[in-house]
Design a binder for these strands. Structure first.
Lengths: 97, 97
DNA sequence: AAATTTGGTTTATAAAATAAACTACTTTAC
DNA sequence: GTAAAGTAGTTTATTTTATAAACCAAATTT
């Protein structure tokens, strides 16, 4: 059977953001924006969803007088991402059932 | 960079249906329904979308006096599914750019 | 001091997923 | 033979999302 896919990660932008954070562990808003090619508005919304789900931790500070939003992946986020990958495998292995 | 994902396949039910058809090549409505665990209504809608996209071919016939809807994956569907898989890899290889 | 840039957030709109209701026909039970 | 239940779906309605557009606050540049 096909394993259920975490709908929070079944979204191009959220998946890309999480994929990037899986590697770098933490990054600021605009770096994630550049890496994913997202618009600010879209990224802002999706980051909030990932935070609400506990997949990332968001810290708002300042750097050179400008606001700086730092996102860190959490253990729950890592687990969710890895689970998503595992579940995805069930859709791509040949031979049904 | 993260490759763009075909939004038609970024859907649990459509991906599961396509994944199943990738293996069996063709199947009737209720077999796909059973294999994916979908509701009839949802599957009906999603099958129409896959057909409109040219990813599957739908043939409506009868078997034992009952309507029978047969879905076959098309070359375009196979290509889309394989492309989706390739693009997905870019989200799961370690090391960002 | 007006215009522009930075770093975002909020609101509005369009598209999608899903559930619920419905259609059409067949079979079974009375 | 007709009422009830089952098969095989489709259509419509509702909720949820994704995305774009508009906005905000402060800092910088001209």
């Amino acid at each position: 059977m096909y394993e259920e896919l975490d709908s929070l990660l079944l979204s191009q932008l959220r998946l890309a953001a999480m994929s990037y954070l899986m590697v770098v562990k933490e990054a600021d808003f605009n770096t994630i924006k550049d890496q994913t090619g997202a618009s600010s508005g879209n990224l802002s919304v999706q980051i909030n969803k990932l935070q609400e789900a506990g997949y990332i931790e968001v810290e708002k500070t300042y750097r050179n007088n400008y606001p700086l939003t730092i996102c860190k992946i959490t253990p729950a986020g890592i687990q969710a991402f890895e689970g998503f990958y595992r579940h995805l495998q069930t859709y791509f292995k040949e031979k049904p059932e």
